[in-house]
Simulated assay, not measured.
Amino acid sequence: MPMLFPVLAFLLLISGCSSSGHRAPVSDLSLNKESVATVKQVNKPSDYENATHYKVEAGDTLYSIAWKTGVDVNNIAKYNNLKAPYTIYQGRNLKLRPSLAKKSHSGTVTTVKKTSSTAKKIKSSCVSEIRVQNKKEKVVASNAKEYHKHSNKPKASQINVNDKGGGKISNWRWPAAGKLSKTFSSSQAGMKGISISNQRGAPVYVASPGLVVYAGSALRGYGNLIIIKHNNDYLSAYAHNEKLLVNENEQVTAGQVIATMGDSGTETVHLHFEIRYRGKAVDPQRYLPKR
């Protein structure tokens, strides 16, 4: 009997510790891990909302990066001093946001004239790096098939972009026949385009004339993807294709067959179609003719 009281006191102590509100439940921790894993599996512009830089991966082009991050391709080029054909190298960190600049009391941007020794070294190394890239690195096509995962040599991609200016496009057409199975949602986690369901192998058409600036499968969550530049303001994308029938840097016309419908990167056969205006997703049904 005397031994019973110490045992009971010990059990009460353990019970009190386990009920403390200072420890996170195991179920909450596992849920957080699943949430992070889900974000990594599918690229969404909202994932990069607060990101200041993006590290170039194998198969990337400047346009696929703009699509992935939701940043206007013209802004990315400006922030990183890139000129057509927009050559980028695997492993490089690209700015997604403008650099912070000191402002005077009058609101004008001022430049700090004094350059530290550290800054000089950085500038010198950057110049050296540019020279190495220009003289020694071989620029290869940005098609994902061209990249070799086991190569240690930096890869580069470039797109020969025709500057068509900006402005409204009035000649959009439907990119595929079939049932409209999903529609656009403006919510952060919502559908950023439309889904059109049809049989496997059904033709996928160009919605408006333009230049193919991406054709590959490097963007997670999109499967076999084609991105077309129509002008400096508008891009369109055609995802989850079975076969791609065009290549990057190819001019395409409205109604041209560019792919066949499939289920790459998804579980059902359908076309996922998006339109981006200056990097931001817009409702395609606002632009497509009624049917």
Rank of each mutant, 00 (worst) to 15 (best):
G255L: 06
G255R: 00
G255V: 11
G255H: 01
V257D: 04
I258D: 00
T260S: 09
M261Q: 09
M261A: 06
M261S: 11
M261I: 12
M261E: 10
M261K: 08
M261Y: 08
M261F: 09
G262C: 07
D263S: 14
D263A: 15
G265W: 01
T266F: 03
T266D: 13
E267M: 13
E267H: 14
T268C: 05
T268N: 13
T268D: 15
T268H: 10
V269H: 08
V269T: 13
H270V: 03
L271D: 11
L271A: 09
H272M: 03
F273A: 02
F273N: 04
F273I: 03
E274H: 06
E274Y: 09
E274V: 06
E274N: 15
I275S: 04
R276H: 07
R276M: 10
R276S: 04
Y277P: 00
G279L: 04
G279R: 03
G279P: 07
K280G: 06
A281N: 15
A281Y: 14
V282C: 00
V282Q: 02
V282L: 00
V282D: 05
P284N: 09
P284A: 13
P284I: 08
Q285P: 06
R286Y: 01
Y287D: 09
Y287V: 02
L288P: 00
P289A: 02
P289N: 07
